[in-house]
């Protein structure tokens, strides 16, 4: 899941009797399955939570370009290079669809990007792990995109129209991502002993972070309950995680790779896999900024954003001058600026 631990700003879920007439009307629209559109009335906490959730999701896509992007120049064949380039480009596109959706709620994209590089915004914990070998590119597509799709498909039905529409577009494109990842893993699993070892090592390192992507168990979380009432979260974290594990374990078996969990076992009675304990200390450490790559990722984005400022400024200045030349009665554009 690309948006983890979204704070709704609420301390508890309120009952209908505590809501204003407007809020009650809003909730009954949601309950009836009517979509909310940008200019409709909505409670402030709904708007704020959505901005937080959608921008976290967008940041995850954009930061997520980095761990894979650094392998484009090293892809081992021209076909893989083209596929990875297209995939990473899609991630950027997904970030843009999502920023677009957040902007319909009154957020500014530059402000969101500023918040990201200043470390004020969250993004998915998963992108703070390093991509050390080519097999990591396979593991990310297979496991990370796989986990993300499970979260994103239900969001196509979420209550906010622009977010739901962005998710529809993203999900259509995302299944290519998961397949290209598995295809890389297949080639490695069928390759030399060294390649197979590379694939197993990648699974060892990415399995648990991928399992953590859906966030901690949220049965007791007031934020999750509120988000579910607002229909911007459709399933619980544990439901999504279980679905991911159930569909992924047989895929690992097919590859002839071993999932790094000695406690992993099919539970006939539940009809699901049981897994060993998840190390939530690691998860919270990464979320708090102490993952292996948090600093690198933010530094790279901050550097790119700062290095690009003069370019963005020049394009804006040129556009203002062109508009002014076309319509001389418009206000004068600001004079050319020194750095």
């Amino acid at each position: 899941m690309y948006a983890q631990l979204v704070d709704t700003g609420e301390t508890r879920v309120r009952g209908a009797e505590e809501m204003s007439a407007e809020e009650q009307a809003f909730q009954s629209r949601l309950d009836a399955g009517v979509k909310i559109e940008p200019r409709d009335w909505m409670p402030d906490p709904y708007r704020r939570t959505l901005v937080r959730q959608i921008s976290q999701h967008a940041h995850s896509e954009v930061v997520g370009m980095l761990p894979e992007g650094n392998w484009i120049t090293r892809a081992p064949s021209l076909k893989r290079k083209a596929i990875l380039l297209a995939k990473v480009q899609d991630e950027g596109g997904h970030g843009m669809y999502l920023y677009s959706a957040a902007e319909t709620l009154g957020a500014s994209r530059d402000q969101m990007l500023d918040d990201l590089v200043a470390g004020r915004a969250k993004y998915s914990s998963i992108f703070n792990y390093p991509t050390l070998t080519w097999a990591d590119i396979g593991a990310i597509g297979w496991l990370v995109d796989g986990a993300a799709i499970i979260n994103q498909i239900p969001l196509c039905r979420c209550s906010y129209g622009p977010y739901a529409r962005a998710m529809v577009r993203i999900c259509k494109e995302e299944s290519f991502h998961q397949r290209q990842g598995y295809d890389i893993m297949l080639a490695l699993a069928r390759g030399t002993a060294a390649q197979k070892a590379m694939a197993q090592d990648a699974l060892n390192r990415w399995w648990w972070p991928a399992v953590m992507m859906h966030g901690p168990s949220d049965e007791a979380s007031v934020h999750s309950a509120q988000s579910m009432q607002w229909k911007i979260k459709i399933h619980s974290n544990d439901e999504l995680r279980q679905k991911f594990i159930d569909q992924t374990v047989p895929q690992a078996d097919f590859l002839g790779l071993t999932v790094p969990d000695p406690a992993l076992k099919w539970n006939e009675a539940r009809g699901h896999y049981d897994i060993g304990p998840i190390d939530w200390d690691e998860f919270y450490a990464v979320i708090k900024g102490n993952g292996p790559c948090n600093r690198d990722r933010l530094k790279t984005r901050a550097q790119a954003w700062a290095d690009g400022a003069w370019v963005r400024e020049a394009a804006a200045a040129h556009a203002a001058r062109t508009a002014q030349a076309a319509q001389p009665d418009l206000p004068q554009p600001s004079a050319t600026q020194e750095p």
């Binding site: 843009m96 902007e103 577009r169 963005r312 394009a315 804006a316």
Partner: peptide, 12 residues
């Protein structure tokens, strides 16, 4: 309508 984007001018 499919979405939005940012650009300094129409060509971009």
């Amino acid at each position: 309508h499919v979405g939005s984007l940012h650009a300094s001018d129409a060509a971009m």
